[in-house]
Amino acid sequence: MSEEHHLHDHEHGSVHAPPQPDDKVHSYYQILGIALKELLIEKGVVSADDVRRQIERRDSITPANGARVVAKAWTDPAFRKRLLDDANGAVSELGFEMTTAKLVAIENTAGEHNVVVCTLCSCYPRDLLGLPPSWYKSRAYRARVVREPRAVLAEFGTHVPEHVVVRVHDSTADMRFLVVPERPEGTQGLGEAELAALVTRDSMIGVARASAPNR
């Protein structure tokens, strides 16, 4: 192992839990979680069905929902304006309900690149995009993206030119952000569904741009 690789591993070890096998129960807290679930079900506080339904609901919410919102904003100027003015109202037009939090849509432009973080925890528009990716919850991302956003974006392969302003938005439990990425060049003829396929999860967090269309 090279010295550089060794250092990399070491840094990871200090900020993430060490890699652990999925197949066996390996921590006290896993046992505790199983115990809590069993006790709550036996006491009738929640049912096994309640828990299963919540897991299914989480699994059913994917970034494709947000991608539909972005594609509509790209093609419908009146919707785009409503989205930027009142995102909760605009996404509900497409059948997406934000159950608890205020949603704020922010638009990337030629002169401004926006990126979202929750420095204190992991607040994320779960009701629209599903659960956040693991790196969004990591200490490294939360600590550094507000300090050196361009360097962090570069780690995602996103290089923002110096003349473009970078704004970092720190989420709270009550306010969560959706980045509307720039519409890629060469997409004039595409319909909403084709456009939505270009809108990735990472582009709606702001660590990446929307994908280029296949030519």
Binding site: G33, L131, S134, W135, V146
Partner: peptide, 22 residues
Amino acid sequence: VGGLQDGPVDTEAHPLTFWEKQ
């Protein structure tokens, strides 16, 4: 932790385990 120093971001998205979903 906002603004503190830290190492590189592990940009790989690791899916939740069965236990984490529970």
